[in-house]
């Protein structure tokens, strides 16, 4: 334990930098993923046929092991000279985020109480107004749950992305293994775990805040 502590103190600058890289990687990917998944999830509520297809595809992507997905993307992205590094990592994280974000958006909006929807129509809201003022606010806690799931998962996959040169806290594990430095491996594993647990906790709080008072038990 002492060794780890010493290691952290000695290398706080580089560990901090890895942590920042990790957060950037996950943060950027999730933001792009939301930008794609949220509108798509909303659109899918108007096209059930397509919803089934899209959710199936997202499900299959989720089933593909992350290291295998990297393995498949490297040859493809090598064509445009981005086989390893940040780009494949971001693409993979975006892909993996799609299932929780799209599914939760789709389900949440579909599940908005039809009475609430009726009331909105009765007040003379346009489709857009209804979406922005009624449906999304009511669906927000569930959408947030999807985002939270995506973030936690991506922190773990982001660690694996270090092996294809994307940086982040996975580097500690990667280098620790190749240098047979147990302390370094442990530091990496613990830092990643803490990052995931903290992110989960914070987003959990945010999710609760977004839940309208009337919904809380």
């Amino acid at each position: 334990m002492n060794e780890i502590w010493n290691y952290i103190i000695e290398n706080q600058a580089s560990i901090g930098a890895y942590m920042l890289e990790h957060i950037q990687l996950v943060g950027l990917s999730v933001i792009i993923a939301i930008a794609i998944g949220l509108p798509l999830g909303i659109y899918l509520t108007t096209n059930e046929e397509l919803a089934e297809t899209v959710l199936q595809v997202a499900n299959v992507i989720m089933t593909v092991p992350s290291i295998a997905l990297f393995g498949i993307m490297i040859p493809i992205l090598s064509i445009i000279n981005h086989g390893i590094g940040f780009v494949p990592a971001v693409i993979a994280l975006i892909l993996y985020s799609q299932l929780p974000i799209i599914r939760n958006t789709y389900v949440a909006i579909n599940n908005v109480d039809p009475h609430i929807r009726d009331a909105a129509n009765g007040l003379g809201m346009s489709t857009m107004q209804r979406l922005l003022r009624v449906e999304i606010p009511n669906a927000l806690p569930i959408i947030m749950a999807g985002v939270r799931q995506a973030v936690v998962m991506n922190i773990g996959i982001g660690a694996i992305a270090a092996f294809i040169g994307a940086g982040g806290l996975g580097v500690l594990i990667n280098q620790g293994i190749s240098r047979s430095n147990t302390t370094m491996v442990l530091t990496g594993a613990i830092a990643i775990s803490i990052l995931a647990i903290v992110a989960d906790g914070l987003l959990g709080i945010l999710q609760k805040r977004m839940t309208p008072k009337g919904f809380q038990q």
């Binding site: 936690v152 773990g156 660690a159 594990i173 293994i177 990643i192 775990s193 995931a196 989960d200």
Partner: peptide
Amino acid sequence: TIPSLAILALAM
């Protein structure tokens, strides 16, 4: 919540 890579590393 703990990533699989971390568990693997810890086991090692």
